[in-house]
Design a protein around this nucleic acid. Structure first.
Length: 695
DNA sequence: GAGCACTGC
């Protein structure tokens, strides 16, 4: 089997091309953008090689908070900064950034664009009139990058460099570089649509196309225009992304320039299965064992699989295999499972350093792809079933399917080889399969319920949703459905053709970080005297599951939950992390209630009030029992069954309310409550008048 | 009698 030579001790030298306005064919194998589309177009471009780095010294240092103790560390950091692929491009980059209102920067993970560009802007004092905001799709990323940049600038976190994510903020009036989640910036835009605090907004990981980034694009364009119109200082914008088809982005931003930063610090050697694999789990396991037999100890292996159950099974099996005599001569194996639902202490286990003569094998969901980075991993095995993106620094891999190990010549090697390689990726599917994989997946915003987005846009003063400048326009049908829902909830009203306006209720609803239907439930709390109770319910509904489902203990968990007694909470399979998060959500909702003047009252165990209050937000989610014993939803008249996990399962209430429909084997109603027909009428008379419910 | 994972305010 090819390519199991020991990775080099020598640090790879980075080759850097900085290219202006050209599409660069960066690699010999097709490049796949994170969203799975190719960008291997060949264009003749202007290759602009920078003249040479090394002379630049930052004009502006940090506040020297730790100067006495850290000076040698600071030197080391400066060296590292200068070694980044982006560094030689600094002068040209700044020139273009000064010249253009919008610039797209394409760079691989590890190029340094996220940590360096904001610092370059600050060093040049281009943030004199307002702070630099850098958005990230994920909380952890915003926090960890801010910490790193604060360290590089030798300043305390929360001073010159800060971050802002939900429930956690570290900023001060002196903060100039602010890392935040894209959702957080959208929240800010409700009270300040011009984003007037900022002179620069940098949208990072734009290729991920989250709903928030897509909406931000439109907001940013609007803000740029308005700031021009009001003769305020301009808003400068940088869109940063991994390799992708940039034409769509560039066209959207008025044919703005595209800058490419090439050069990976840690090249990855790729292997593809030579033959199609029937059983990807088996293929992944056998690959692990094969690597294990050939790689030096302490070179750890990370395996991507799909789900918890599968992962637990593979962990179990590898532990069994590891005890086999035939492996006695090889390093000792330590196997870890890693997925989001795992208790925190078990997740932390993964970070324990590998001891001499030992090897760590981590079997993970794609959580290890973006949210958790494990040091020491030299080998990645990609089963092709988990959605894998940039795990090893500088790699650009994707969805795949792995290969049976037994044949030594079973791998096809692509990409750069040899000396510079700092990691290996084994893909359990063939190059042909890789090439055939989904191109251009549909952006999330085109698949989502639009009611939250529209409520937010209306709160920012955007009245015509149909003409809002989305980079990809959601279908008129989806927009209309959402508008209808907001109208039914009394959040918005049509003022004239296609023009909408928020009602007083809607203005309050927009303040809540919730689905509009849940916000409406809270607003109705005082009417039913049960704000206190619905706050708890809505907090739970809008958080991740507070339950745990350990494999092998399924039945015990189900039985424990059925008891529903005062003892129930104690050691009964509750997910501590999510439960704590839910408590935080509830606190935040209480604060928003107080700000909106919603009185927090309790109904003292009067559960009928609670159920009636829930109807106020979820009246479109009701199903009616039919003569044959099946349920039909009243909104879209589709057949739906009570989910077996529901406490109502087995019973036959005439009307049931649900939080969502889940289409699996059948259509199931999730999280139910029995409701009275009379209540439905009283709560939403216009809606139910048309629906002929029997009282 | 079920059954994917992850992310955000």
């Amino acid at each position: 089997m090819a390519g199991f030579q020991e990775p080099p001790l020598k640090k790879p030298k980075t080759d850097v091309n900085f290219v202006f306005n050209s599409h660069l064919p960066v690699q010999q194998s097709p490049i796949r953008g994170v969203n799975g589309h190719f960008n291997n177009k060949q264009h003749a471009g202007n290759f602009l090689f920078p003249k040479g780095p090394a002379t630049f010294k930052p004009k502006v240092q940090g506040n020297g908070a730790n100067r006495n103790t850290k000076s040698s560390d600071q030197l080391k950091i400066l060296k590292q900064r200068h070694a980044l692929p982006i560094f030689p491009a600094r002068p040209r980059l700044l020139k273009e950034l000064k010249k253009n209102d919008v610039v797209i920067v394409i760079g691989e993970t590890g190029s340094g664009k996220t940590t360096q560009i904001p610092q370059y802007l600050h060093e040049e004092r281009l943030d004199r009139k307002g702070a630099i905001c850098v958005t990230q799709p994920r909380r952890v990323a915003a926090i960890t990058i801010a910490k790193r940049v604060a360290e590089e600038m030798d300043t305390n976190l929360g001073e010159l460099v800060g971050y802002s994510v939900r429930f956690e903020e570290s900023v001060s009036p002196s903060t100039k570089l602010k890392y935040m989640t894209d959702g957080m910036l959208l929240r800010e835009a409700i009270s300040d649509p011009l984003l007037s605090k900022y002179s620069w907004v940098i949208v990072d990981e734009a290729h991920e196309r989250t709903v928030s980034t897509d909406v931000l694009f439109g907001i940013i364009k609007d803000a740029q225009k308005s700031r021009k119109a009001f003769a305020k200082y301009p808003l400068r914008v940088i869109i940063m992304s991994a390799t992708m088809d940039v034409d769509h982005f560039s066209n959207y931003f008025n044919k703005c320039p595209v800058l490419y930063i090439e050069g990976r610090q840690h090249p990855i050697e790729m292997f593809y299965a030579r033959e199609k694999q029937e059983d990807y789990v088996l293929a992944a396991m056998s690959t692990v064992i094969q690597i294990h037999k050939e790689a030096p100890p302490q070179h750890d292996i990370l395996v991507f699989l799909t789900g918890q159950e599968e992962i637990d099974a593979v962990v179990h099996n590898i532990r069994l295999i590891a005890k086999d005599n035939s492996l006695a001569e090889f390093p000792k194996i330590r196997v870890h499972a890693l997925y989001a639902a795992l208790p925190a202490h078990q997740q932390l286990d993964v970070f324990r350093a590998t001891a001499a003569g030992e090897r760590k094998v981590i079997i993970s969901t794609n959580i290890a792809e973006t949210s958790i980075t494990i040091p020491g991993v030299r080998y990645v095995v990609d089963s092709g079933r988990a959605k894998v993106r940039n795990y090893l620094p500088g790699s650009g891999f994707d969805v795949l399917k792995v290969k049976k190990i037994s044949q030594a010549q079973a791998w096809q090697r692509t990409g750069r080889a040899g000396r510079e390689t700092s990691g290996f990726c084994y893909r359990a599917y063939t190059l042909e399969e890789f090439n055939a994989m989904a191109v251009n997946p549909v952006p999330e915003i085109l698949r989502s319920n639009m009611s939250s987005v529209i409520l937010q846009l209306l709160a920012m003063g955007i009245k015509n949703i149909l003409t809002f400048d989305f980079i990809d326009k959601p279908s008129t049908e989806y927009v209309q459905q959402a508008v209808e829902q907001l109208t039914l909830l009394d959040a918005a009203k049509v003022v004239k053709s296609d023009m909408l306006e928020l009602t007083e209720t809607g203005k309050k609803m927009a303040q809540f970080p919730l689905d509009p239907r849940y916000a409406k439930i809270l607003l109705s709390g005082p009417d039913y005297g049960c704000t206190d109770e619905v706050l708890t319910i809505v907090a739970i509904l809008s958080s991740e599951s507070i339950y745990t489902n350990p494999s092998g203990k399924k039945e015990a968990a189900v039985n424990a939950r059925r008891k529903f007694s005062s003892m129930w909470c104690h050691e009964n399979f509750l997910n501590y992390r999510n439960l704590s998060y839910t408590v935080e959500v509830r606190k935040q909702l209480v604060q928003v209630c107080q700000r909106c003047g919603i009185s927090i009252v309790s109904c003292q165990q009067n559960l009928d009030s609670v159920r009636r209050c829930i109807i106020a937000g979820l009246f479109t989610n009701v199903a009616e029992l039919q003569l044959g014993g099946k349920y039909l939803t009243l909104d879209s008249r589709q057949e739906a069954a009570l989910h077996p996990a529901s406490v109502l399962f087995g019973g036959k209430p005439a009307y049931v309310l649900f939080t969502e429909l889940v289409h699996t084997g059948k259509t199931y109603m999730h999280i139910n409550s029995a409701v009275d027909a009379q209540w439905l009428f009283e709560t939403a008379p216009e809606y139910f008048r048309k629906r002929h419910i029997k009282i």
